[in-house]
């Protein structure tokens, strides 16, 4: 019973964060483009996400005539479920984790790969050229970047000697620098780039490139199904930001302890990374497809492998 309550609280908090991440994004990008962002609904536009939610909920749900209905219904659910399942294993503070499993990191990888099935199926089931191209792009992008993402974290696993996310944080607190981002700077760089590609964010948002593919794989989705994809994308961002925080930035530990709010530093770091996402989106144009591929295969994977080799040497010698 207590578990169900914890789950509900977690889902509620995360969904609220997703809603306000969209507000945060629109404000940040707006001001970076010397605009204002939402200002109309409520003070400073603070009620905008709620208005958007209500609007999306009551919108007409259009399904294309020749769509594969079963897959069309299933795709957004696969995406959202896969993204949300990750939340269970994330430690937000010491002991504040829904399911402490000893292969947490692997679980997160598995789930984030599963989410791309939703994307591919959505592209296939919509029976639309834009969706199909978006799905194909997503497929090949995920294949190339999943490898780099996994390899970039191998260094962290070697240093921490564990796949359990809580233990990785604990090992980091005892390490010399307190965070792995300094000794594993190469891994951190590869992880950040691969993270952007994995979550389909600018400058690697090719599967949903709005200037070429309308909206990519969810072109044909509307109303509540569209918002499921949207939520899945933002939860995916949140999860990747959490993984970056846990594996490289020291998780919930900070320069000083904040009383009564054990997850303060964790939240602060996540907001920082979310801001970084939006900052990049406001700055960089989209990569060309062959650039994306050659960056993944020719730069990131060799770098990640190099990082593993160097980490292994250093660990053996010292």
């Amino acid at each position: 019973m207590a578990l169900v309550v914890h789950m509900l609280i977690l889902v509620g908090v995360v969904l609220l964060h997703v809603a306000y991440a969209t507000y945060f994004e629109r404000k940040v990008i707006g001001h970076m483009q010397v605009r204002m962002g939402p200002t109309r609904v409520g003070p400073l536009g603070l009620l905008q996400p709620i208005a958007d939610g209500i609007k999306l909920f009551f919108k007409e749900d259009v399904i294309p005539g020749c769509a594969d209905r079963t897959l069309f219904y299933a795709a957004p659910i696969i995406c959202l479920v896969a993204a949300m399942a990750n939340l269970a294993v994330l430690p937000f503070a010491s002991g504040l984790v829904l399911a402490k499993i000893n292969i947490g990191l692997l679980f997160v990888f598995a789930m984030s790969s599963l989410a791309s099935y939703g994307v591919v199926l959505a592209g296939w089931a919509s029976n639309s050229k834009f969706s199909f191209l978006g799905g194909l792009r997503s497929m090949s992008q995920v294949i190339s970047y999943e490898i780099a993402l996994g390899l970039s974290l191998v260094g962290v696993m070697m240093m921490a000697g564990s796949l359990d996310l809580s233990e990785i944080v604990a090992a980091q607190q005892q390490s010399r620098f307190g965070i792995y981002a300094i000794p594993q700077f190469l891994g951190f760089f590869v992880f950040v780039v691969a993270m952007l590609a994995e979550t389909n964010r600018a400058p690697f948002d090719l599967p949903e490139a709005e200037s070429e593919l309308v909206a990519g794989y969810f072109t044909e989705y509307s109303g509540i199904r569209f918002s499921l994809f949207f939520m899945a994308e933002y939860i995916g961002m949140l999860v990747m930001a959490s993984i970056a925080t846990i594996c490289f930035l020291g998780g919930w530990s900070g320069p000083f302890a904040v009383p009564h709010v054990p997850f303060f530093w964790f939240a602060a770091k996540i907001y920082g990374i979310m801001f970084f996402y939006f900052w990049l989106r406001a700055t960089l144009p989209r990569y060309r497809y062959d650039q994306l591929m050659s960056l993944g295969w020719k730069v990131l994977i060799p770098l990640a492998l190099l990082n593993i080799v160097v980490t292994g040497f250093v660990k053996t010698i010292f």
């Binding site: 001001h31 605009r35 900052w279 700055t283 960089l284």
Partner: peptide
Amino acid sequence: EILQGMALTLKRLFSKPVTRQ
């Protein structure tokens, strides 16, 4: 060059919007 671009957008973040409401 990416860092240069990011410095520019960060600078703009704190500038006054040109929006006419």
